[in-house]
Simulated assay, not measured.
Amino acid sequence: MANSPQARKRARQNVASRAHNGSMRSMMRTYIKRTIAAINAGDQAAAMESLRKTTSVIDRVADKKIIHKNKAARHKSRLNAAVKAMGQAA
């Protein structure tokens, strides 16, 4: 248990920070799932629009260091490749 006043404050801040970070991570995963659903549905226009929004969210989360920048790049690269593959298959 935290004994000093500053340690107690840090403990309180960590609870709020953890909740916020979890919320941001969850939002990112939801956007990724929406993009994958659009890709699986075969709707290229929706997939492109969803990819644009998802890329923005992934970048925002990575900038706040909630996820590592390489993980962000990996997600964006794989989603982009999947959307591009839709255009070639059609």
Rank of each mutant, 00 (worst) to 15 (best):
P5G: 08
P5C: 00
Q6S: 11
A7S: 09
R8V: 13
R8A: 12
K9W: 06
R10P: 00
A11V: 06
A11S: 07
A11Q: 11
R12Y: 07
Q13M: 14
N14S: 10
V15T: 07
A16W: 01
A16F: 03
S17A: 14
R18F: 11
R18Y: 10
H20D: 13
N21M: 10
N21Y: 11
G22E: 15
S23E: 14
S23T: 11
S23H: 10
R25S: 12
S26Y: 08
M27A: 14
M27P: 00
M28K: 01
T30W: 01
T30S: 10
T30L: 10
T30D: 11
I32F: 06
I32M: 11
K33C: 04
R34C: 03
R34V: 08
T35S: 08
T35Y: 06
I36W: 01
I36E: 15
I36S: 05
I36C: 01
I36D: 09
A37N: 05
A38T: 02
I39A: 07
I39F: 07
N40D: 15
N40I: 05
A41C: 02
G42Q: 05
G42C: 06
D43W: 01
D43C: 02
A46F: 00
M48F: 03
E49R: 03
S50F: 03
S50D: 09
L51S: 03
K53T: 05
K53M: 06
T55W: 03
T55S: 14
S56A: 06
S56I: 02
V57I: 15
V57L: 08
I58W: 05
V61F: 09
V61R: 06
A62R: 07
H68L: 13
K69Y: 10
K69G: 02
N70T: 13
K71H: 10
K71P: 00
K71S: 09
R74H: 09
R74A: 15
R74V: 09
H75W: 05
H75K: 00
K76W: 06
K76L: 07
R78I: 12
R78G: 13
L79G: 05
L79N: 04
N80M: 09
N80C: 03
A81R: 12
A81F: 03
A82G: 03
V83Y: 00
K84V: 09
A85M: 01
M86P: 01
M86L: 15
M86H: 02
G87N: 04
G87A: 15
Q88Y: 09
A89V: 10
